[in-house]
Design a protein around this nucleic acid. Structure first.
Lengths: 379, 379
DNA sequence: TCCAATAAGTTTGATGCCTGAACTTATCGC
DNA sequence: GCGATAAGTTCAGGCATCAAACTTATTGGA
């Protein structure tokens, strides 16, 4: 009861920072008395802070602005990339307070060695004088979310690593550790910090291709958390052989490696330069990738009935050239396009989407269900 | 609070019929006192009934068996097929109490005429002396679930029909009307009456191909309720032209019409006879369909991380011949197959799956949140 | 300058639902 | 028939919410 209402009230404050108690009561349907008492508890626990009195253009007492406390528990995000480690500290509102990026050839290191580095990074972050409420870890691989352990990360060459367990042991910090797939966390970052609504597919292409499916303002993870594996969706069953053993996988036909290869360039930066100068080979390579992306995404949209496709990672940078051919393919193949044409937008978050998503996930866990946290602080 | 606990208690009784109050208390974590009081209310409202005293193999008072009341509110399901109308009356447990099937060329009739027939059928069903708690309607088309109106049903030739509104007006009965897509409701029937767990894709092929996605024991409907449209998933972008304007759609390559055509038979019954006798052309036609189904379903499974595929409708009858090639394709293309191989099973419900699903949906709405109903009855 | 009007926020008593413990009822085995 | 055991009920106590009265803060007009 109180648990539910605490979440309700805190959500209202997070959604509309600066609201007064009375405004929150009106919005949640609770009484002023109830809101007052819940807010007081949350102020006591350091989740909510009072601001200045609000302006008012008429008679009556002015309300005290409420907002998420900038000194409340922070979320620490960690991303284990193929050739870097990144961390990111965010406050309750999701604002980035500190970040850290370091090259690290994780492909060549054992999981134990890498996780030791991660633990060191966590301990460093803890030395900042902000309280840590949770740690989120992003990995490029299949994560069994409930257990927080990694099943396989092809591009890291890792298999069966109990990330949550290892990290909890090594970092000597009594906070929850959440582990998630990089693409899924990037999608959540887009949901929380980008400018798209509550339902979309976020597709990001770096070395692999991953999708994050957001439905009703929440991540769709599937039964074990393996959802969103779009990279090996078969878009051309008679197409070229893929490393995974199947044929015509999306990753093989529209992945960064294939685009770069087909365009005959050395990397994404050169590709962008060529595209800007109107190079025909480069344009054709990107248009082809767009077509295959369209085939895969139209399938996802038909199946899931989502109104928006967000291009993340490298695709966000290629968006001007992907947009039109992708749209054409979607309009042709999506059955419900007539009623709700699919929107295609580029992500506004850069390469940090995944870390930010990881960090924000950690604080969101508290915001989504504040009562246990409040109790633990006030106890 | 009570609302939540009422649902909890009723769910426990529905899950394990014949439990005593004490057993329900143990299972839900509530106290015997709370359960007693909630159960008494629900008995008063006619949702729950007491049975005989339970057997016991030791000392102590025997518990009174509790089960969903067979005289409680019933659900009435209606299916508007292409060439028939079907209705089905189920009690709270989902057991079919009456059914009715009548040929009706709905393709040739106006929606108004068909809905008038449906309303008549509903009024007939009401004359049975059981209370009706809700009506569910299954239609082969895109349904905007929230509004209960049909956007388009290609095989009926209907467009923009406000089924809920029309029916509510015509049937003169003050109960909620739920409208849903046939394939989705068939999937729910499978969930509730079949023998599969809480997560699966149900794929049914009659004239069109539709999928119902069940996740965490609930239907995945998408934003507007258009989810599960798998028929026009592109499985072979360079394949034959489909009526929808796209190329190589699943429906075009693995639909009933295509199988029948490729096998050179007159219909499904002849096809089954040929298959049983080992006819080579028929076998090849079915294997080819299985392959394309495998391409489409592997995509769905990768995206959604579902452990089971249920074959419904015509595919259920073809299951012995579909099974092996479908499995081969799934094992090859599903990324997480190594950890959780995809199960393929045939639906045990026949052609009535959709009506039953529609009827059961209507009563499930009460079971999922009994308190408002209880209050309305006791008031 | 003061006061009525208005609105924010707090206090207080009542209500509703759940809980724990004691109590009643029913059954088994000796 | 009696003690042990378990189901189900009764009742006092607690906790969170609510409605309403009350206090505090602010505006604008007399």
């Amino acid at each position: 009861m109180r648990r539910h209402n605490s979440a309700l009230v805190l959500d209202a404050i997070a959604e509309t920072p600066g609201s007064s108690r009375a405004a929150v009561a009106a919005r949640t349907g609770l009484t002023k008395a109830t809101v007052s008492s819940l807010v007081d508890r949350m102020i006591g626990a350091g989740l909510v802070a009072e601001g200045e009195a609000q302006a008012r253009s008429g008679p009556g007492r002015r309300g005290t602005a409420l907002h998420l406390s900038p000194t409340g528990p922070h979320g620490l995000g960690v991303e284990i990339g193929v050739d870097y480690l990144a961390t990111c500290l965010v406050d309750l509102t999701g604002r980035v307070r500190a970040r850290w990026l370091r090259p690290s050839d994780n492909r060549a290191s054992s999981p134990a060695r890498v996780l030791a580095k991660v633990a060191t990074a966590v301990r460093t972050a803890v030395k900042q004088d902000v309280p840590i409420g949770g740690v989120g870890v992003a990995v490029p691989g299949l994560v069994e979310v409930a257990g927080g352990s990694l099943r396989v990360a092809p591009n890291l060459g890792w298999r069966e690593v109990d990330i949550r367990g290892e990290l909890t042991r090594r970092m000597a910090l009594d906070v929850p550790v959440l582990v998630g797939n990089e693409a899924n966390l990037a999608a959540l970052a887009e949901l929380w910090h980008g400018d798209v609504a509550a339902d979309f597919v976020h597709i990001s292409g770096e070395i692999g291709i991953g999708a994050g499916i957001v439905v009703g303002g929440g991540l769709f993870e599937g039964v074990s958390g393996f959802g969103g594996e779009i990279g090996h969706l078969s878009v051309d069953p008679r197409g070229p052989q893929c490393a995974c053993g199947s044929r015509g996988c999306l990753e093989r036909l529209a992945g960064q490696d294939e685009i770069v290869r087909a365009a005959g360039v050395s990397g994404v930066d050169e590709l962008l330069a060529r595209l800007a100068s109107g190079d025909r080979t480069a344009t054709t390579a990107v248009r082809s990738a767009a077509k295959w992306l369209g085939v895969a995404l139209s399938g996802a949209v038909n199946l899931l009935d989502l109104p928006t496709v967000v291009l993340g990672g490298t695709y966000a940078r290629l968006e001007p050239w992907l947009r039109e051919p992708l749209h054409a393919e979607l309009d042709r193949r999506v059955v419900s396009a007539e009623w709700s044409p699919v929107r295609v937008v580029a992500s506004s978050l850069g390469a940090e989407a995944a870390v930010r998503g990881a960090a924000t996930t950690a604080v969101r866990a508290i915001l989504a269900d504040p009562d246990p946290y409040v109790n633990s602080v006030l106890a």
